[in-house]
Computed example of a mutant assay.
Amino acid sequence: MRWKNLGEHTVYENRWFRVNLADVELPDGSHLDHYLIRLRPVAVATAVNPDNEVLLLWRHRFITDSWGWELPAGVVEDGEPIPAAAAREMLEETGWRPGPLRHLFTLEPSNGLTDATHHVYWADEAHYVGHPEDDFESDRREWVPLKAVPDLVARGDVPAANMAAALLMLHNVRLG
């Protein structure tokens, strides 16, 4: 059954997102108003070192008042290539510059409400440049054993679904 978006208008907008109201036609012909959030693409990046440790951020999310492990991530600026945005975010948030990035996968973490497309990349090397420019984004940055990822996710230490999916995929790709 396919829902049809017959049109939408913006009810709020800022630099990061737009909240739109859509007129949606359901398969039975009835209509409903559906709010949705239009977001810029998000670039995500990390590195795995020769010891099979993954570079993670330990951070607090005030919206859910939760702590957890995450990968560096942020919006892609207008005209910026997605891999360049991923590398920039990793450097800004960790102080580590990734080596050549590999595309891991792309996902839509909440496609019932948003059109946020997250592009996840990883590198098998990184070079420490210095203290992160955006150190306010996390309490600490650590190299965590990749083999620990399934247990971290199972315990709830990776509360964001997009980050859990990315880390489990990376675990599978790297450790099989």
Score class of each variant (00 low, 15 high):
42 V>T: 09
41 P>C: 00
80 E>A: 10
113 L>S: 07
107 L>V: 03
101 L>D: 12
62 F>N: 02
76 V>F: 14
75 V>S: 09
145 P>Q: 10
105 F>N: 14
47 A>C: 03
121 Y>W: 13
61 R>T: 02
79 G>V: 13
79 G>F: 14
147 K>F: 06
140 R>F: 12
121 Y>H: 14
69 W>A: 01
40 R>C: 00
141 R>M: 02
77 E>T: 03
154 A>W: 01
135 D>V: 00
117 T>R: 15
85 A>H: 08
135 D>M: 05
97 R>N: 07
32 L>K: 14
143 W>K: 06
49 N>A: 04
140 R>M: 04
102 R>N: 14
119 H>Y: 12
130 G>T: 08
133 E>L: 08
33 D>I: 02
101 L>Y: 14
152 L>R: 03
96 W>D: 05
156 G>W: 09
41 P>W: 00
72 P>N: 10
131 H>F: 11
126 A>D: 12
63 I>K: 11
139 D>F: 11
48 V>W: 00
147 K>V: 05
93 E>H: 10
52 N>Y: 06
107 L>D: 07
155 R>K: 04
59 R>Q: 10
130 G>Y: 15
47 A>Y: 01
150 P>C: 10
76 V>P: 01
44 V>G: 01
29 G>Y: 12
75 V>A: 08
59 R>V: 00
30 S>Y: 09
89 E>H: 15
55 L>I: 01
111 N>R: 10
105 F>H: 13
128 Y>Q: 10
132 P>I: 10
96 W>Q: 13
136 F>T: 07
78 D>Q: 12
110 S>C: 09
123 A>G: 13
133 E>F: 11
36 L>C: 10
100 P>I: 09
111 N>E: 14
61 R>Y: 11
134 D>R: 12
38 R>Y: 06
48 V>Y: 02
